[in-house]
Design a protein around this nucleic acid. Structure first.
Lengths: 141, 141
DNA sequence: ATACCTGCAAAAAATTTGCACCGAC
DNA sequence: GTCGGTGCAAATTTTTTGCAGGTAT
């Protein structure tokens, strides 16, 4: 399943003129298995753990390439190194639990619409946006 | 005016146990004059331009101190160095014109409320948030 | 007088890049 | 075979820190 997802991407990338090297294959498979939002160093660690070698420089270059192809997305939370996630079909925002560091994804159409309205009112259109809620679990009274 | 604002802050800071040094006075006055959102290097440049000297290390340390005192706020836009703004009485979000880099401040109560609702629905309370709209001027058809 | 602050220069942390070699197509 | 990709190590960029001396209170 995540196996086939990675293969699917390889075809699409090749069609887009991106060469499928051993390192890229490896990173695609590591990314396909991500349930979380790892940074470059962590992805490098996982890739190495998966057996084959990749240099950290190549990890960075590959992430940039895959982002340009729309395959992954870059997340830049407060002051941490950049994290990455497979590009999803549906846009979503992020909630970060400040205690645990856990990242929760969510969507809300009303917020999306309001953002577009606000921009439009001021004569702009949205290219992209970033909404992050830094939260704490509510005390269960 | 911005003169008195800086003096006002000096008193408050002193009361909070923060020593008012020549360098901090200088930075407070530079910050009070900011209509924009400069980064540490830019603040350093302006401070030097204002006559007296400050080391960049001190600029960084002072910014951290002032942030801890709630006097200024740190902005971290996409991949750029951190920028700073005087802490305002009223919270606001930011719109960044991707063509010009211009930063526009805005507020929207409905968005604020929706955010709180979303967090609450999932059992969280918001500690703080970040909403950035990266926008482009709409073609005036 | 005593902390706390500052400058300098070195260290860190994250990411990028030059260059020679290698491998996908 | 060609052109783009990779590894390595060095460079960049932004920010932090150790230490010796300075200064606000």
């Amino acid at each position: 399943m995540s196996e086939s997802r990675a293969l699917q991407l390889e075809t699409a990338l090749r069609d887009a003129g991106v060469r499928i090297t051993r390192q890229r294959k490896l990173l695609l498979s590591v990314l396909a298995d991500c349930a979380d939002h790892p940074d470059a160093t962590e992805l490098h660690r996982r890739a190495e753990a998966a057996g084959a070698g990749v240099s950290l420089a190549t990890v960075y270059r590959t992430l940039t390439t895959l982002q340009a192809q729309g395959v992954i997305e870059k997340l830049e939370f407060q002051g941490e190194p950049a994290r990455w996630e497979p590009a999803d079909q549906h846009h979503h925002d992020h909630m970060i639990d400040v205690e645990t560091g856990q990242v929760i994804e969510f969507t809300n159409d009303r917020i999306e619409r309001l953002q577009a309205e606000i921009a439009a009112e001021m004569g702009y259109e949205i290219v992209h946006h970033r909404l992050e809620l830094y939260v704490r679990r509510k005390p269960t009274a």
